[in-house]
Deep mutational scan, measured.
Amino acid sequence: MATGGRRGAAAAPLLVAVAALLLGAAGHLYPGEVCPGMDIRNNLTRLHELENCSVIEGHLQILLMFKTRPEDFRDLSFPKLIMITDYLLLFRVYGLESLKDLFPNLTVIRGSRLFFNYALVIFEMVHLKELGLYNLMNITRGSVRIEKNNELCYLATIDWSRILDSVEDNYIVLNKDDNEECGDICPGTAKGKTNCPATVINGQFVERCWTHSHCQKVCPTICKSHGCTAEGLCCHSECLGNCSQPDDPTKCVACRNFYLDGRCVETCPPPYYHFQDWRCVNFSFCQDLHHKCKNSRRQGCHQYVIHNNKCIPECPSGYTMNSSNLLCTPCLGPCPKVCHLLEGEKTIDSVTSAQELRGCTVINGSLIINIRGGNNLAAELEANLGLIEEISGYLKIRRSYALVSLSFFRKLRLIRGETLEIGNYSFYALDNQNLRQLWDWSKHNLTITQGKLFFHYNPKLCLSEIHKMEEVSGTKGRQERNDIALKTNGDQASCENELLKFSYIRTSFDKI
Score class of each variant (00 low, 15 high):
321 M>E: 10
159 D>A: 07
122 I>S: 09
65 M>R: 00
316 P>V: 06
328 C>A: 07
169 D>W: 13
130 E>I: 08
172 I>P: 08
336 P>V: 11
170 N>M: 06
335 C>P: 02
82 I>Q: 06
143 S>K: 12
78 F>G: 00
307 H>L: 07
48 H>A: 07
208 R>Q: 15
213 S>C: 14
329 T>F: 09
69 R>H: 02
290 H>G: 07
309 N>K: 09
299 Q>E: 14
165 D>K: 15
184 D>S: 12
324 S>K: 05
88 L>A: 01
104 P>F: 01
67 K>H: 02
197 P>V: 09
309 N>A: 12
160 W>G: 01
263 R>G: 12
234 C>P: 01
110 R>N: 07
283 F>G: 10
273 Y>W: 08
75 D>V: 11
310 K>Y: 10
325 N>L: 09
224 K>F: 07
218 V>M: 08
42 N>V: 00
297 R>H: 07
280 C>K: 02
240 L>N: 13
83 M>C: 08
203 G>W: 07
154 Y>M: 03
191 K>I: 15
84 I>C: 00
47 L>M: 04
193 K>G: 14
201 I>V: 13
142 G>L: 04
59 H>R: 14
63 L>P: 01
175 N>G: 06
59 H>V: 05
51 E>H: 02
255 C>Q: 03
147 E>H: 00
329 T>E: 09
259 Y>S: 01
195 N>C: 13
173 V>G: 07
302 H>K: 03
319 Y>S: 15
87 Y>E: 00
213 S>H: 08
155 L>E: 02
333 G>C: 15
228 C>G: 00
38 M>K: 15
305 V>H: 04
280 C>A: 01
43 N>Q: 12
151 E>F: 05
201 I>K: 06
57 E>L: 04
211 T>F: 02
262 G>C: 02
147 E>R: 01
294 K>A: 15
36 P>F: 15
200 V>P: 06
149 N>T: 07
60 L>G: 00
52 N>S: 11
136 L>Q: 04
313 P>Y: 06
218 V>G: 05
222 I>N: 11
164 L>Y: 09
270 P>H: 10
330 P>M: 04
39 D>A: 04
277 D>T: 07
48 H>I: 11
216 Q>H: 04
306 I>M: 08
298 R>A: 08
203 G>L: 08
59 H>P: 04
171 Y>S: 14
101 D>P: 06
165 D>L: 09
236 H>F: 06
87 Y>P: 05
162 R>I: 05
316 P>W: 01
238 E>V: 05
318 G>F: 09
227 G>K: 05
159 D>G: 06
69 R>V: 02
174 L>T: 13
183 G>R: 08
204 Q>D: 13
137 M>C: 13
303 Q>L: 12
118 Y>P: 02
130 E>Q: 11
42 N>H: 00
243 C>G: 00
284 S>F: 02
201 I>G: 07
199 T>L: 09
294 K>G: 10
98 S>V: 02
57 E>S: 12
160 W>N: 01
137 M>A: 06
254 A>V: 06
238 E>A: 10
275 F>W: 10
209 C>A: 11
336 P>Q: 08
64 L>T: 01
255 C>W: 01
229 T>V: 09
138 N>Y: 07
205 F>K: 07
316 P>M: 04
96 L>I: 03
72 D>E: 15
157 T>C: 07
276 Q>M: 07
103 F>S: 00
143 S>D: 06
330 P>L: 04
204 Q>H: 11
299 Q>M: 12
178 D>P: 06
254 A>I: 04
270 P>T: 08
184 D>M: 15
279 R>P: 00
177 D>W: 12
334 P>G: 08
184 D>F: 14
271 P>L: 09
187 P>S: 05
144 V>T: 06
306 I>E: 04
227 G>Q: 06
156 A>V: 11
151 E>R: 12
94 Y>C: 06
111 G>N: 00
232 G>S: 11
186 C>W: 01
57 E>Y: 02
234 C>W: 00
52 N>T: 15
85 T>F: 01
91 F>G: 00
165 D>P: 11
146 I>C: 03
145 R>T: 02
56 I>H: 04
211 T>Q: 04
220 P>Q: 05
269 P>V: 08
292 K>S: 15
184 D>T: 05
94 Y>P: 02
128 L>C: 03
126 V>L: 14
331 C>M: 01
302 H>A: 13
157 T>A: 07
65 M>K: 00
195 N>E: 15
325 N>C: 10
242 N>K: 06
273 Y>R: 06
54 S>G: 03
45 T>W: 14
323 S>G: 14
151 E>V: 13
273 Y>T: 10
170 N>S: 07
102 L>C: 05
232 G>P: 11
189 T>F: 13
256 R>S: 11
271 P>D: 05
313 P>V: 05
271 P>G: 13
302 H>V: 11
106 L>G: 00
300 G>I: 14
83 M>A: 07
164 L>W: 01
61 Q>P: 00
191 K>T: 14
205 F>S: 15
222 I>A: 14
105 N>A: 04
159 D>N: 05
118 Y>R: 00
248 D>Q: 11
140 T>Y: 03
166 S>M: 07
276 Q>R: 13
138 N>I: 07
243 C>D: 00
180 E>F: 14
249 P>F: 05
281 V>K: 01
151 E>M: 09
82 I>D: 00
132 G>Y: 01
48 H>W: 00
320 T>G: 09
80 K>F: 03
273 Y>F: 13
57 E>T: 08
76 L>C: 06
263 R>N: 14
167 V>L: 03
191 K>F: 15
